[in-house]
Every structure is written in C-alpha cells, then in structure tokens.
C-alpha cells in the first residue's frame, strides 16, 4: 500500500570521495519523503537535494538501463525498482556500492572488470554465410530460445553477488557474461558454438560457477543465469563424450 502522508526515512550510506576522504565511512542521513515517492531512487534523488555530494548513477528510472545497481540492505538490486514499502519501518536503509568491484566514489563502482568479462565472450552474432537480401529466417520457437537471455541490462547485480567472481574477477566470466555467451549459443543464426565453447573451456572461465544461485536471487529482470550456465556445462559434457 502507498503511504498516505509524508514520512521521514533514515539511511546509512557508504561514502568515499578519494579527493577528500582518507578512508570510507558510513553516513547517517535522513530525508522527508513525499507521498508520491514510491521507489528507493525517488528517495535518493531527495537525498541528493539535501547533500549534493552524494554520488550514484541513475538514468531511465524504470529498470531498463541498468545504471542504479547497488547493494541495498545487504542485497544487490536496482534503486528504481525497489519499492519503499518493502523496507522494515524504523530501521535505517543501508546502501553500499556493489560488492567486489573497486569504488570510484560513494555508490559508483569501477565496472571495467565486469565489462572486460562481458567483452571476452565475443558478445555479437557470428555468421559467415553471405548476407541474404532480406532477414535471416528464424522460427518463433527458435526465437523463443532467446527469451530470458536477451533481456539482460548489464547492471552487474548478479556478477557482483557471486562469490566465485569476488575470488577470481580476472578469470571467471561471471553470470552476466555467461548468460550473454549462452544467448549467442542458443541463437539459431549464430555459427560459432564450437569457438564459444572452446573460449570457455578452462578451469575458471565457466567452471568456477558452483550453482550458488545468488545471481538468480538478485536479478532485477528475473533472469536465470544459473540455468544458462547449466546448459553450457551440459554442452561441454556432451562434446567431451
């Protein structure tokens, strides 16, 4: 239910500005919300009016651009899709940057490693046939194989919730990258399945996934990277025998 009157909400927010702070600290700050402030991002925009030095990324405010991923009361999520009504009353809301990536400032993390892993799986369609004059044909059933894969918004909630990525961010592709890998493997128009599997044939890149399923738990788009990873593992197994 939407609250019917303005209320004050307490926050504890991870703050660090390398230009100013010797080390990170947790800031206690409260803000009065309007009845129309439905989402955590609405509250954060108000916080920024109060303290303009609070830094975070945001853009579409509707869960499709993937900018405002952060760690909210210990769990990764998007601020724009997190309803204020889901927070327990009377307890401060704790906001931290996504875990496992270097912090640039406050809630802004350096996503270089995340995108490096995404790029490493060659995230583009490979098809060496001569280009047809019209579209390549694909049956609705074959197209449906891409559902649950192509919708990824690269927010990094999943990958930065994964202990295997925390330990080996340089070697383990991570759930987002592997979901993207399977998105192309599953595409009937793509011809690089063998190369894609070769690219993941290594003790770390794929096989560091131990099906902990944190990725599934946090995905704001309700995608299932573990399932996609399972399918890649299955294909690896099948070609080994």
């Amino acid at each position: 239910m939407m609250p019917t009157e303005n209320r004050t909400v307490q926050f504890k927010i991870y703050r660090y500005d390398p230009d100013r702070d010797a080390k990170p600290y947790m800031q206690d700050i409260s803000v009065e919300l309007d009845v129309t402030d439905r989402k955590l991002l609405d509250a954060m925009v108000r916080l920024k009016v109060k303290d303009d030095s609070l830094s975070f990324r945001r853009s579409c405010r509707e869960g499709v651009c993937g900018s405002d991923a952060m760690n909210i009361n210990g769990k990764n999520g998007l601020a724009c899709l997190t309803d204020m009504s889901t927070f327990p009353v009377g307890k401060p809301i704790v906001l931290r940057p996504l875990p496992g990536l270097p912090v640039i400032r406050d809630l802004v993390v350096d996503m270089t490693q995340f995108f490096k892993q995404y790029h490493s799986i060659k995230p583009y369609l490979v098809n060496n046939d001569p280009l047809p004059e019209k579209e390549r044909l694909q049956s609705p059933e074959d197209r449906e194989e891409l559902n649950g894969l192509y919708e990824c918004i690269l927010c990094a909630c999943c990958t930065t919730a994964c202990p295997s990525f925390w330990w080996n961010p340089d070697k383990f592709v991570g759930p987002a990258g592997l979901l993207a890998a399977y998105r192309f493997i599953a595409d009937t128009r793509d011809q690089a399945t063998t190369e894609r599997l070769d690219n993941l044939e290594d003790p770390y890149r794929l096989f560091r996934c131990h099906s902990i399923m944190n990725c599934v738990d946090v995905c704001p788009k309700n995608l299932n990277p573990t399932k996609a990873i399972g399918k890649i593992k299955e294909m690896m197994l099948q070609r080994a025998i």
């Binding site: 583009y124 369609l125 098809n127 280009l131 004059e133 019209k134 579209e135 390549r136 044909l137 694909q138 049956s139 609705p140 074959d142 197209r143 891409l146 192509y150 192309f184 595409d187 128009r189 793509d190």
Partner: peptide, 19 residues
Amino acid sequence: VIELEHYGMPFDRLDNGRI
C-alpha cells in the same frame, strides 16, 4: 531494419520465420 537483423537483433518472428 534488415541490417539490424543481420547484426543479430532478436526480433519477434512470424510463423514463416520473418520479422
């Protein structure tokens, strides 16, 4: 639009496989 399909854009499909 055809170029996008060639780039790999996942358009929905008709029964005959077209966009």
